[in-house]
């Protein structure tokens, strides 16, 4: 049942993208705009997210919003994720696009339903991204970087901050308008 919900949610986002296809302009302030849906895996969870990418010359800025699948669906705890990604074309032969990527991710969830006990997770990552296709693009991205977790501990009566190394693998599709 939970997988069916996930399937429909994914379908919902695809529909939104398709709807946008007929109404959005192809250029925004002299930039190319594309929308993406992606699935990312890191040491915490799988994340499903929607992104908007604005490309100007060789630089691409992408902002996105998603959620942790295991936490949100299987553990019934809403776990939103926000990200910003900056990428630069390293090699582009019109069909395969190789980019260097730097990204920042923020996600959080409340561990206790009855009171506010929020854990915040940040990731600062760098790696590469491969895009294949022209208007409809398939992309794969691999990154490594730093990971932090912060939360308030009642036991120690202070905010705790943990730092660790992390990794991330992401794949998805995007459509350029």
């Amino acid at each position: 049942m939970k997988l069916i919900f996930l399937f429909f949610l994914a379908l919902f986002s695809f529909c939104l993208s398709a709807q946008g296809n007929s109404t959005k302009k192809t250029q925004f302030l002299d930039s190319n705009v594309s929308f993406s849906n992606s699935l990312r895996y890191n040491k915490l969870d799988f994340y499903f997210s929607h992104g908007i990418q604005i490309e100007k010359e060789k630089l691409k800025n992408e902002f996105g919003l998603g959620f942790g699948i295991n936490k949100t669906i299987f553990q019934q705890r809403i776990n939103p994720e926000f990200y910003y990604m900056l990428s630069s074309n390293f090699r582009n032969d019109n069909l395969i696009d190789f980019q260097l990527v730097a990204s920042f991710h923020l996600n959080f969830y409340n561990t206790n339903r009855n009171k506010r006990e929020i854990h915040f997770f940040n990731e600062l990552l760098t790696g590469f991204k491969l895009e294949m296709g022209k208007k409809l693009k398939f992309h794969f991205q691999a990154e490594i970087g730093l990971f932090s977790e912060s939360f308030h501990s009642d036991f120690y009566s202070k905010n705790l901050f943990l730092l660790d190394f992390t990794y991330s693998a992401k794949m998805g599709i995007s459509y350029a308008f």
Partner: peptide
């Protein structure tokens, strides 16, 4: 229809546990 499903999903996420 999809918005209703999305809302159901959110409500489902908030369901009470044992």
């Amino acid at each position: 229809r999809f918005r209703i499903i999305f809302l159901l999903f959110v409500i489902f996420s908030c369901s009470k546990k044992e």
